[in-house]
Structure formats: C-alpha cells, structure tokens
Design a protein around this nucleic acid. Structure first.
Length: 467
RNA sequence: GGUCGGAUGGCCGAGAGGCGAGGCAAGGGACUGCAAAUCCCUCUACACGGGUUCAAAUCCCGUUCCGACCUCCA
C-alpha cells in the first residue's frame, strides 16, 4: 500500500504528506479576484485542487477547504467605473459567474468561502499585531507597509534576493522606508470605498486578506496552501512575510498549479472572450471540459486548442459509453471501486495521466467482456472505472451532470422507441433492409442513435453537436 | 539584470539511467445485410552539439528556441 506524497514548491521536491493533526487536513486555496468572467485557466486551478481534495477525502482525511473571494481591489474599482455600476455589484456579478463555472465543472463548494470585505476586522487585528511587533509601520499617509528588510527569510519561496528585484515602477518612496516594502493597507482615495482603521480610512491590500482569512479559518498553522504559479511572487511571498512576522507558522506545504497556455503563452484577459468557460460550454459539456482540464498533470502547462478539447471529449464519451452499456447489461450502475494502480498513481503527487492509462486498460478489458458476455468482467471494469472517475470529478452517474428531463421522460421515450425497434427487428428478420434502414434513419433524424449489439439493438440520444 | 520552467511521434500528453505509458487521428483486419459500437494489428518519438556510463529521452557541460514572474494575475 503506497502512501501519499506531494510536491512542495518551497523545497522543490516531492515528500510524504503528513498532516499537522492526525486525520485532518486544512487547505487554503487562493480564489479569484472577481473582476471578469472566468476563463479556463481560472477553473483549472479549481479543478486541480478539487481533485486533490477528493483524493484526500477518499484517503480518509477530514478536509477543511478554504477558497477565498477577493471582492475588493483596484481592478474591480476600475471595472465599476467602466460598467457604471457600484463596485459591490460588479464583484457580486463576477462572483456568481465563478460560482456557476465551478458548479458546471463539478468543483465542490469550499468548506468556507470567505470574502475579503467580510474580514476587515481580522485584517486590522493582524496589522495591529504586526505594528506592535515592529514588522509593519504606518507612516501617517493612511497606508500601512510591511518592512521587508527586517524579515530574515523573505523571498525563500521564489528563491530571490531582495536586492535583485526590479524597483516597482509606481513605488512611492515618500513614505516607504524601502521601495520593496509592500502595502498591507491602502489609504482611501476620494470616491473609493473605505473602512475606518486606527491609521485612517482605506481598503485592504491584496496580500493581507489571505493571511487574515487563512488565520481566521485554519489557525496559525495549516497543511497546504495552493494557488496558480503566478502567485508565488509576490502574493505568496508576502503572505508568508505577514504571517511569519506575526508569529504564525502558516502553511506547511505550498502547491501551485501550472497554466493553461494558448500558443505557448500564458492565457491572459487580453485574449478576449473565446476561452471563457461559458463560451466553451457551448461546444462541450461541463463533465467533458473538466475531463480535459484534469487530464494533464497539475504542474504541467496545458496547451489549449479547440481540437485537443474536442479529442479529449471524444475519449471521455468512449469511457462514458462503456459505463452506460455496462449498466444496461448489468441492470445496475457500477459500484465505485479504487484500484491499486489508481491509488499508486494518485499517491505519487496526483499522477492523473498515469492513472488515466490504467483507466484505458480497464476500458479495453471491459469492452471485451461485453463482447464475450462476461458479466463478472464487465462489472470489475465498470466498478474500477467509476471509482476513478468519481475522484476525478467526472462520474457520469453523479446527479450534478444529469441532463434535464430525468427518468420519467426517458422511460416514456424508451417505450416509444422500443415500438419502433420492434418494427425494425421484424423487418430485418424478413431481410427487408430498406424498411429497417428507413426506421433507423428516421430515428437518427430525431437525434436517436441505434446500435446493434450482441444483446440486441440499443438506443441513445446523440451528444450535442460539435461547433 | 535576478529567479524559475519548458522543447517527447500527425496532434495531445506521461516517464526521469536498461524494459519505447496512454489517448486522439490515420491505415489495415475481425465482427456486421449495411452502419454504429467493439476488439486485434500498424504507424516506435524524446530541440541541437559535446561528455559521463557497459547502458542516456533521463545525468553533466555548452548552444538554440519558447515561455513565466520581478508588487494587478489561476
């Protein structure tokens, strides 16, 4: 029996996962800044860490999963001006869009999903502590800064030296002791939302909120902190700086997902709307998009193309088709079973691609078992495949993926189609293939696909058409 | 300037000293009245140049190209 090993960005190595508290895992994942609709890069992070969470849960851990919502920042304020709407309306609109995208991809809701603006009190407490300890200072302009040169281990996650950093273009050295000092708190500008503090009214800096919320929900030390690669610096470095300066042990392990790239380049908001989740869901189902995003290793760049996505969806439908056929033959949905091969792969830093190779093997064996009528073999393969799909969040039997209409409609439809199939079978028996093909073509025109199997004809509703 | 990744067959994507993952696409075959589905077979690749080694896609040195971060980023 293998045990779980995970990569740690801090040490740049894979090491055995040992929780701080037996049987418990605390995870903090940096969520979205809700200032635009989600594109697939955003949801890849959600999918990757959802797989981690499901695997930890399946491994017997009680997982507390925190994913924050940054609902106040410069971009949201700019967007509010642009959209001629209050900043909070903009934030809520895009928070909903993210929630919808996560739901469409079967990303489980976090245990708690804190918003930055709901935790100003905790942020003020943290700043007070940091100032008391001499790590932060309020120079009187309403800003509060963290003094990075006082920290002994600043930039260890990204392995940089303070003096190597390019000075920020917008650094205001009037008040900062060092241009690299970063803002915990930003003084209010006229017209901007603000909250009162002992140092003046203002709003939180981006980094402070995550430290404050992680502390509020997971305590001074927790197991895993996650996010996209681009958050390593400055965001995660600054979180570490704030938290350690406050005396917290903070995260024991750091995990970062790689990007979805387009033509080799990191996906960015300038690429337009085509790779937004809502757009892609017009050509593939949520379960298929999830399969695609989850199929590459989380630390590998995933080169997006519409062709690759379509191929991935085809591959998934093949697996799904087997599970549906096996269910028809066995008269019951498969029971999820986790195979040893799947366990070993997932325990090796979530080696999903290796696990997928195992699924392909089980699929081949299962299809052969259908051909030979080996019900025991069918069940063994179907159980194993469903078990794996469940962890990957792509279980076709999961109610979240069920198409509207439901059982009643399907069974009524089945009765009608069975009548037509009986006519067709009769025609085939008397070798009247013109008549039998006419029936098949007629059903096909209605979106009903007929297949002749060893167990007799079966029908299914054809998948949504490709664009 | 600093830090960090990457380059694998037509395409996507694993692997990290010996045994050429897997998928998609393509071609051939089996099955079938035909189709679909399914199964079998074929297509045997690691950017380039050196080196280490009995053995290198994998380790070392160098080169080229692509990309990311350096205070808005999943």
């Amino acid at each position: 029996m293998s045990s779980l090993s995970l990569y740690d960005t801090l040490t740049r190595t894979t090491s055995p996962f040992v929780p701080l508290k037996k049987g418990e895992v605390g995870i903090y994942l940096c969520g979205a800044t809700v200032q635009a609709p989600p594109h697939i890069g955003h949801v890849r992070s959600g999918v990757n860490f959802d797989i981690l969470r499901r695997w930890l849960t399946k491994s017997g851990y009680n997982v507390t999963f925190i994913r924050n919502v940054t609902d106040i920042d410069d971009k949201i304020l700019h967007k509010a001006v642009h959209e001629k709407a209050p900043w909070w309306a903009v934030a809520m609109k895009y928070e909903r869009a993210f929630s919808d995208a996560y739901a469409a991809l079967n990303v489980q809701p976090p245990t708690y999903e804190p918003r930055a603006t709901g935790h100003i009190t905790q942020m003020i407490e943290l700043m007070t502590l940091l100032i008391e300890k001499g790590a932060a200072y309020a120079p009187g302009n309403g800003d509060v800064y963290l003094e990075v040169r006082k920290l002994k281990s600043y930039l260890t996650l990204s392995r940089q030296q303070v003096d190597d950093l390019l000075p920020a273009a917008d650094a205001d050295e009037t008040y900062k002791k060092d241009p690299r000092d970063f803002a915990l708190w930003k003084a209010a500008k006229p017209g901007d939302p603000s909250w009162p503090t002992p140092w003046g009214a203002g709003r939180p800096g981006w980094h402070l909120e995550c430290s404050a919320m992680a502390h509020a929900y997971l305590g001074e030390a927790f197991d895993i902190h996650g996010g996209g690669l681009d958050l390593i610096f400055p965001h995660h470095e600054n979180e570490i700086a704030q938290s350690e300066a406050a005396g917290y042990a903070f995260s024991k392990r750091w995990m970062h997902n790689a990007w979805v790239t387009a033509s080799g380049e990191k996906m960015s908001k300038s690429l337009g709307n085509s790779l937004q989740v809502v757009e892609l869901l017009k050509s593939v189902r949520g379960i298929e998009l999830r399969w695609y995003l989850g199929s590459a290793h989380y630390r590998s760049m995933l080169e997006f193309s519409h062709e690759a996505l379509a191929e991935s969806a085809t591959a998934f439908r093949r697996i799904e088709g087997f599970l549906i056929r096996s269910t028809e033959i066995l008269g019951a949905a498969p029971t999820p079973v986790i195979s040893q091969g799947f366990t070993d792969a997932m325990n090796d830093d979530l080696a999903v691609p290796t696990a997928l190779a195992g699924i392909s093997e089980a699929l081949r064996l299962g299809n052969s078992a259908i051909t030979s009528g080996d019900k025991k073999g069918i069940k063994a393969s179907a159980d194993e495949i469903r078990g794996a799909l469940e962890i990957l969040g792509c279980d076709p039997f999961d109610p979240v993926f069920s198409t509207s209409g439901g059982e009643d409609l399907t069974s009524a439809l089945d009765g009608v189609i069975q009548l037509a199939l009986a006519q067709r079978t009769a025609a085939r028996d008397r070798k009247d293939f013109a008549a039998s093909d006419q029936i098949r073509d007629g059903l096909a025109a209605l979106g009903i696909v007929i297949e002749d199997t060893a167990q007799g004809p079966r029908w299914s509703i054809s998948q949504i058409s490709e664009k």
